[in-house]
Design a protein around this nucleic acid. Structure first.
Lengths: 192, 192
DNA sequence: CTGCGTATGTGTACGGTGTAAACAGCGGAG
DNA sequence: CTCCGCTGTTTACACCGTACACATACGCAG
């Protein structure tokens, strides 16, 4: 069914499949059962359940980065930023369990702001405002992450236009704030 | 109201204490042990673990509402909104496990936008923009909830000034957008 | 070939969990 | 008094993560 070279990949494949099917947390034994091996076999490849879930999260972040990169492909900086935000929320809604696993508080996964999946957003914000602005980047990240989380665990139903509108409002706020107190940086160019 | 001032409340008390102590999920048996009763006793007061956690979440939301109300006490609309946002994030950081339990995807708790704990924010946004604006309210909610979530489960460390700055930027964006299109028809109302 | 170490998977076992089923004390209604 | 509903107990089952000991299969030294 799954062209996997070893048990390790087979387990991760099944974990992804289970998560996409709505399973909350695959679990070592269920995974081993799905892979057709004994309950203890996974421990030859993962120290414990947390390590397995961390590996799953790593795969999720790879897919996530792909989605964000695709959205960041073309347009002005502002357009790309908004598109990234929509892709962020879309990814969470399309893969809710995987997204939750990625951001579970156990997974010591790349969740820091300088991780690849977020650096792409931070970079776009920096391009937009003309300088590195951790606060602006945090704001954008928080907005999209907040909407994603609320859509997943809250009772909120989101539409792409809403996501876009919220993000555009924040971008407008960045521009307005920049106009008030311009940052000492390279020549400020129109956001396009 | 609630006909039991006995074991039910005791269990909830211990659940809160355990959550505040950093426990991830109290668990029926652990709770019963802490209360000094048998493992099955809690089932006389809660249908199952999810119901118990939902009751815990309800308590959490009461505390949460208190915190937000206190922050909303005085100042201009914009100031109150920002203060509410800071209080939102502060609450999450001060009671991480409780906050997570409140927003866990099992708890059918008041997480809808019209729940008391969020209505206070929505109302303040409405007062700020001069009309009901679900999108603006969603944006504010998403921003603070995103920062809270990232602070809890991501590796993000937040400072109150940062929270304030992000929120103020969004408010500036709302104002800027309002200036552009002063009378936006009731935006494509997301279903509540 | 034998012997051996390493990597991988198996079997068994322990303590934890949520929870279903049957039972026991106890206060109020007839 | 008996009967009943509420509350808590005991017992039991299935599932979980995982520690331990064992089996199997490999490449390699002699």
């Amino acid at each position: 069914m799954v062209p996997a070279t070893g048990l390790r990949d087979t387990l991760l494949d099944h974990a992804i499949v289970m998560l996409e099917a709505g399973e909350a947390e695959p679990g070592i034994r269920a995974l081993a059962r799905a892979a057709g091996v004994s309950a203890m076999a996974p421990y030859r490849h993962f120290a414990d359940k947390a390590a397995l879930l961390a590996a799953v999260a790593e795969r999720g972040f790879a897919l996530f980065l792909d989605a964000l990169s695709a959205a960041d492909a073309e347009g002005s900086d502002a357009e790309r930023l908004v598109a990234q935000g929509v892709a962020y929320v879309d990814f969470a809604c399309a893969h809710p369990a995987l997204f939750r696993a990625m951001f579970a508080r156990g997974a010591a996964a790349p969740k820091q702001p300088d991780a690849p999946a977020f650096a792409i957003l931070t970079r776009r914000v920096a391009a937009l405002v003309g300088a590195d602005d951790p606060t602006a980047a945090l704001g954008c990240w928080a907005i999209v992450h907040g909407m994603a989380t609320l859509a997943l665990d809250g009772g909120v139903t989101l539409m792409p236009e809403q996501v876009r509108a919220v993000l555009r409002t924040y971008v407008a706020g960045i521009v307005a704030v920049m106009r008030d107190c311009p940052t000492p940086g390279p020549s400020p160019e129109g956001e396009g």
